[in-house]
Design a protein around this nucleic acid. Structure first.
Lengths: 199, 199
DNA sequence: CGACCTTTTGTGCACGCGGTCAAAAAGTCG
DNA sequence: CGACTTTTTGACCGCGTGCACAAAAGGTCG
C-alpha cells in the first residue's frame, strides 16, 4: 500500500455511484466516455486511471447496483410475513414511472438491461448476471420455504419453482415498464400472482 | 407506382428476413451496416436505397418479427383448450437453448431486446413495442375470457390481469434465458404459473 | 431504337468513438 | 530541500461508423 504519490482529487465511490445512474438510465452503448467525463467532472485520463476501460467501469457499476439491490431484498424479506414483502418487491418497478430517467423513461432493472445489451457478447457480464439471478432465486426461495412451513404460502409448487417464477416476473415487469406501463393494470397482475401464491 | 426503371436485383422480403436474423441475434448496436452488407450480399447503397437508414431497417425487422409472432400466437390460441397452448407459449423460450445464435446465446424475444436497447432513446421503437404489448395482452385476455367462461381458468383474477401477468412472464423468461437457464427449473416455474391459472 | 426512370456499384467523407500518452502538479519521505 | 511516486491534464490518434454521391447499368415504353 503506497502512502505516497499525488492524492486522488475525487471520491472514487461517489464517482462510481454517479456513473451508475448514467449507465442505468442510458445503457452501456448509449453512454459515451465523454458523457461520463462531463457528468463526473473529471478528466478522461483520470477515469481510465481509476477504473480501467469503459467496460470494466460499467461492470463495476452493475456490481454496485446488484449489491445494493440484494441488501434491500434481504432486509425486506427477513422480517414479517413474506407475501406482502414480495408484493412490494414486484410493485416497486410497477410504480417506477416516477423514477423516470433524464430521457423520461423508467430505468428498469439494470441487471435486465445488462442481460439484453451486453450478455450476448460478454462472458464476464454474463457471469455477473447469472450470479445475480442465482442469488435472487436463492434468497426468495429461502423466504418462501419458511413461508410454506408457516402455512402462509401454498405448497402447490416448490419454493424453487415459485422463486424462479418471481424472478421472471420481476425481470419482465421491469423491462415492460420501460415501454410505458398502465400502473393499475400492472398492480392487478402483481396481485393476481401474489394471490396465487397464498396458501 | 412506377413500372419502369432498373429492376431490383435482390428479393426485398428475403433480405429483410435475413436482416431480422442478424439483428435478432446481435442486437441493434452490435450489428454494423457492414455486417448487413456482407450477410445480405448486396451493396451499401442498395441497402440504403431500399430500406432507408439502419434504424428504419431495424424497426422494419422488428415489425416483421412481431407480425410473425402474433400470427403464431393467434393460431395457437384459437383452437382447443387455452392453458396447454399458453403453456407452450411460455415453454418455448424456456427451451430456447437450441436456438443459440451465432454467438452461442439464445436470441430472447426481439421485442424485449428492443425495449432494452432502443426504447429509451427512440420514440418510434417505443410505439412499436407498446403496440406489441397491447396486442399480446388483448389476444391472450380474449382467450382467457373464453376459458374462464368455459370453466377452464380460474376467475380469481380478471382476464386482463392474468394476461398482463403472462406478458411479464414471457418477457422475463426470454430475457433471463439469454444469461443461461436451467431448463427444467424454468419449466417448473412455467408449470407453477399455469397450474395457478387453472380453475 | 432511343428517351426515360430506377437501381446498382463502389468510392469517399466527416464525425464521434474508445483509448493513449507525455508533461505538469501534488503529495510523501529521507 | 530534493528524490520519488501517483494522479491530473488535455491534446492526440486510429478506427469504424452511418451516410452521400456520381456514374454506370438494366429495365420499360412511345
Amino acid at each position: 500500500m503506497a502512502r505516497t504519490g499525488r492524492p486522488r482529487a475525487f471520491d472514487k465511490d461517489q464517482a462510481l455511484e454517479r456513473a451508475l445512474l448514467l449507465f442505468w438510465s442510458r445503457g452501456y452503448g448509449a453512454t459515451s466516455v465523454q458523457d461520463l467525463v462531463d457528468a463526473l467532472a473529471l478528466e478522461r485520463g483520470s477515469l481510465y486511471g481509476a477504473f480501467g476501460d469503459k467496460r470494466q467501469f460499467y461492470l463495476a457499476a452493475v456490481q454496485l447496483y446488484w449489491d445494493t439491490y440484494e441488501r434491500q431484498l434481504v432486509t425486506a424479506l427477513e422480517a414479517g410475513p413474506v407475501l406482502p414483502a414480495l408484493r412490494e418487491v414486484l410493485a416497486n418497478p410497477a410504480r417506477a414511472q416516477e423514477y423516470a430517467s433524464d430521457v423520461g423513461v423508467p430505468h428498469g432493472c439494470m441487471i435486465g438491461n445488462t442481460t439484453a445489451e451486453l450478455v450476448p457478447q460478454d462472458d464476464e457480464a454474463r457471469e455477473i448476471v447469472a450470479r445475480s439471478h442465482a442469488r435472487f432465486t436463492r434468497i426468495v426461495a429461502d423466504a418462501l420455504r419458511r413461508a410454506q412451513a408457516a402455512g402462509e404460502v401454498t405448497q402447490a409448487a416448490t419454493p424453487e419453482a415459485q422463486a424462479q417464477l418471481l424472478l421472471f416476473t420481476v425481470q419482465g415487469l421491469s423491462l415492460v415498464a420501460r415501454a410505458g406501463l398502465d400502473t393499475s393494470a400492472a398492480l392487478a397482475a402483481v396481485d393476481a400472482l401474489i394471490d396465487a401464491l397464498r396458501a
